[in-house]
Design a protein around this nucleic acid. Structure first.
Length: 820
RNA sequence: GCGGAUGUGGCGGAAUUGGUAGACGCGCACGGUUCAGGUCCGUGUGGAGGCAACUCUGUGGAGGUUCGAGUCCUCUCAUCCGCACCA
């Protein structure tokens, strides 16, 4: 080995500087209408939330994305690979409350640190399109989109029971409540009745569901979205209270069990409770129960296996199929936010209703015959299928599945119900009583009501304030100079909306802005979007499987419907990367197992850090970090560079041994073939890197036998193939070897002739067990293979003179000899 | 409870269509070169037996299909994730 030493701290900044100076990764938008011979490819990683400094997960997602971007570029694509910051949000504001440092300052400091480190990592970003969602020239268009949605009736204000986080002093979207607690701070969420802004994502429920079939996404993410949307088919059936003359529709997926309904239950939040209980003598008991239930909080209330509680209202309603009067209860196992907040209870065929009926000694009537039971109450509640019983003469005997349609048809003809579809998905609550977010661009005018700020007066700039502490209303309310304004319609005194938007609004359209980031006339030019959208490859964490990805899809569809873009799905292909753990646990300060990307990059260089992260396992799986493992990858890159430098330094050309040369050239072609397939088809960066390691090891092994040309070809190929994972060292090695710029070279293509060889090792099995291996010519026919296997010494030994009963020949692989 | 995933050496992980289990890397052992080494190079490394050629055994567990199963089927155990009183 030569004494040349691999020095990433010298190599990496040198190439980064050149790429920066030449703006190598900047890609211009095409002039509309001008044909291009290059295909476009939009490669995008989820934008980071800038807080403190990047962590190891950032290094992973951008290493994966950069590998894809480089691979696409060298395969001739025009690649859009931008970067930005999801810069509004609670952490910066909470930091401000604690320290007094304005959110803008801490955010800008974090962004500066992210920029520094991203550059130090050598990620091939088109920095000309950089954006931060907290900048007025970005959120101006967030506000414009809000106006568009408002105009289209997709944004509305409504009084509603909403999730309130007592700690953050703000409302939360349904999606931000985990097990009854605030997603951010973990405080138990309370229900409050408040007037809030909503976006009508439920209008898109069906399309959000159907279009999942059209995208190339991981199945688990699609499933999560399907579950979240929660479409169920059933019927709406109207029960009536004849005494009051009121109607109570219920949603049921089991109209076939209607004849088994023996009571009726309303949710504690149901608006008609007071009215129903009035005059029955049960008012007080109902009132007490409702108060208690509402105070209990959703966490306790939602606990499974809880004893059923409830109170009778002292009223009955009429079952539309048989005219029966059934008693009405209020019980907290019925949820106001699902269906109509009222249910028909069929204790014989529903576990929850059964438990309630048992607790309150209510009648239980079987209406579906079970396979096992013979009409008695054994095996109840029964959730299976069977013929109907006790269901008026006309339905008895009908298999219950068929009865669903028949009963719904009958209800429809009688005007007492209809088939119906229900969703779990709720409208998206977007207003937040917090400071550090995008102001909702509306004004309240005593004369004109809620008035949107006209597009030409946007942005409504977030004012600088002193006190960020939450007080149950937005801190903005105290900024009286800002709040008091003129009505855009009548010019009279008016007040600004002081709520800000959920930060998920900001990140629901940033990928559109990248395409036309410098446009200050419009959010984007639709013609430019046509070039780039949809994103060809989106990469990010699975933790965004529901929230961000659902909201972004909704925005895309709504904006497409409004004529602002063509694509109705934002992300054609999605890749979700796994977490990096250490000692089997998620990295966290409390565990004391955090690996800082900065420390690793400082010590080993960016190439080692990036390649190691991709090497330790399949990028979509969780993988465990090991400090010792990094050394191995560093050794490999070091060896690749030193072998290249050594060869470049070598003055004279050596012919070398012919067989060694051929072996090396074959190995290089094998690697080209394997790495290409691994990256392109499987995202299997770990095995791709392993293949380059093998090739490099082969050069090292044949160092003294192989000639200069063969070694040059092998090392060139190794650098070329490893470039997407470790761009600096490979670029440097490639230049030493060839004088060329690696990133400008087309992706290598394997020579098919070199993928074949004259002979191979034939596996010889006896009764399926490996007994010998023999070298056979590649063109040997089945008969020859059989003979070769039979002749193998250890096969002979195991046959021990017995006659083969059967011989399986798999050309190119093996021969299996079966004896009795 | 429903849905999804994972389970392979001391460790991280390979095995693409059912066809040589353990690629590649770490670690470890031995040897060499340096000997200022946190250097570099070589050999070996699933377990058991054997000087060796080899033999037996082995992919969470139990069955099955097959000439042949880590891979397919049935049951089962463990861990992780998502949803959950959703009518």
């Amino acid at each position: 080995m030569s004494d040349r030493k691999y020095d990433p701290q010298e190599i990496e900044p040198r190439w980064q500087q050149l790429w920066e100076d030449e703006a190598t990764w900047v890609v211009a938008n095409q002039v509309p209408g001008e044909p291009s011979d290059q295909q476009n490819s939009y490669v995008l990683e989820m934008l980071p939330y800038p807080s403190g400094e990047p962590h190891i997960g950032h290094l992973k997602v951008y290493s994966v994305g950069d590998a894809v971007a480089h691979f696409q570029r060298r395969n001739g694509k025009r690649v859009l690979h931008p970067m930005g910051y999801d810069a509004f949000g609670l952490p910066a504001e909470n930091h401000a409350i604690k320290t007094g440092q304005p959110p803008r300052l801490s955010t800008e400091a974090a962004i500066a640190e992210f920029q520094r480190q991203f550059r130090r990592w050598g990620i091939s970003i088109d920095w000309s399109r950089e954006l931060a969602t907290c900048e007025p020239d970005y959120y101006r268009w967030t506000q414009w989109i809000f106006n568009q949605l408002l105009k289209a009736g997709l944004a509305y204000r409504q009084q509603a029971h909403v999730n309130w986080c007592p700690n953050d002093q703000t409302v939360l979207a349904n999606e931000q409540v985990i097990d009854g607690c605030c997603e951010r701070c973990g405080a138990e969420v309370e229900l409050r009745e408040l007037e809030q802004w909503f976006l009508k994502i439920t209008d898109y429920a069906d399309r959000l569901l159907e279009d999942l079939d059209s995208v190339d996404w991981p199945e688990n993410v699609k499933t999560m979205q399907r579950n979240w949307i929660g479409r169920s088919e059933g019927a709406e059936v109207v029960f009536t209270c004849d005494e009051l003359g009121s109607e109570y529709p219920v949603f049921t997926t089991r109209p076939d069990t209607l004849f088994g309904a023996t009571f009726f239950v309303l949710a504690p939040e149901h608006p008609d409770l007071q009215r129903l209980a009035a005059g029955t003598g049960n008012e007080q008991a109902v009132d007490d129960y409702v108060k208690e239930a509402l105070a209990r909080g959703s966490e306790l209330r939602g606990a499974a296996e809880r004893e059923k509680t409830g109170v009778a209202l002292g009223r009955t309603v009429t079952n539309p199929v048989n005219g029966e009067q059934i008693p009405v209860f209020v019980a907290d196992y019925v949820l106001m936010e699902y269906g109509t907040g009222a249910i028909m209870a069929v204790p014989a065929h529903d576990e929850r209703d059964y438990a309630f009926a048992k607790a309150f000694e209510l009648p239980i009537r079987r209406v579906i015959e079970g396979n096992d039971a013979d009409g008695d109450d054994e095996g109840l509640p029964y959730g299976g299928d069977g013929p109907l019983v006790n269901s008026a003469p006309q339905f008895d005997g009908t298999p219950n599945r068929e009865a669903v349609g028949a009963i719904v048809a009958w209800l429809e003809s009688e005007g007492k119900g209809r088939s119906s579809v229900n969703y779990r998905l709720r409208d998206w609550l977007i207003s937040r009583q917090r400071y550090w977010g995008c102001p909702i661009p509306v004004v309240r005018c005593p004369q004109c009501g809620i008035v949107p700020v006209p597009d030409d007066q946007l942005p409504v700039v977030l004012p600088v304030i002193e006190d960020y502490a939450p007080k149950g209303q937005s801190p903005l309310a105290a900024a009286s100079e800002w709040v008091n304004t003129q009505c855009p319609t009548c010019g009279g005194p008016a007040q600004r909306e002081t709520d800000t938007m959920d930060t998920f609004v900001d990140s629901s359209w940033y990928f559109l802005r990248y395409c036309d980031a410098a446009n200050d006339e419009a959010a984007w030019d639709p013609a430019v979007l046509r070039e780039w959208m949809p994103v060809n490859q989106y990469i990010g964490g699975v933790e965004h499987a529901i929230l961000h990805l659902l909201y972004a899809r909704f925005f895309c569809k709504a904006l497409a419907d409004l004529g602002h873009l063509d694509a109705s799905e934002p992300f054609a292909r999605l890749f979700t990367q796994g977490m990096i753990t250490r000692d089997g646990a998620k990295m966290s300060k409390s565990h004391g197992n955090v690996v800082s990307p900065k420390a690793i990059v400082d010590r080993y260089g960016a190439d080692t850090a990036r390649a190691y992260i991709l090497f330790i396992g399949a990028p979509d799986q969780d993988v465990d970090w090991s400090d010792e493992g990094v050394e191995g990858v560093h050794r490999f890159l070091s060896r690749l560079w030193r072998l290249s430098a050594e060869l470049a330094d070598q003055g004279e050309t050596v012919d070398g041994d012919k067989a060694a040369n051929l072996m090396l050239i074959r190995k290089a072609n094998w690697a080209i073939d394997k790495v290409t397939a691994d990256i392109d088809r499987r995202f299997a960066f770990n095995t791709a890197i392993a293949a380059v390691m093998e090739l490099t090891n082969e050069v090292s092994r044949l160092r003294d036998e192989a000639g200069s040309e063969a070694k040059r070809f092998a090392l060139e190929s190794a650098s070329s193939l490893c470039f997407p994972f470790a761009p600096h060292v490979t670029t440097d090695a490639y230049q030493l070897l060839t004088g060329e710029r690696l990133w400008e070279q087309p992706w290598p293509v394997a020579d098919p002739a070199m993928l074949e060889s004259d002979s191979y090792e034939l596996v010889c099995q006896v009764n399926g067990k490996l007994r010998d291996r023999v070298e056979v010519p590649s063109d040997a026919d089945r008969e020859q293979l059989e003979q070769a296997a039979l002749a193998a010494p250890n096969v002979q030994a195991h046959l021990a003179g017995r006659e083969p009963k059967k011989v399986i020949v798999v050309p190119g692989k093996l021969v299996n000899i079966v004896v009795g």
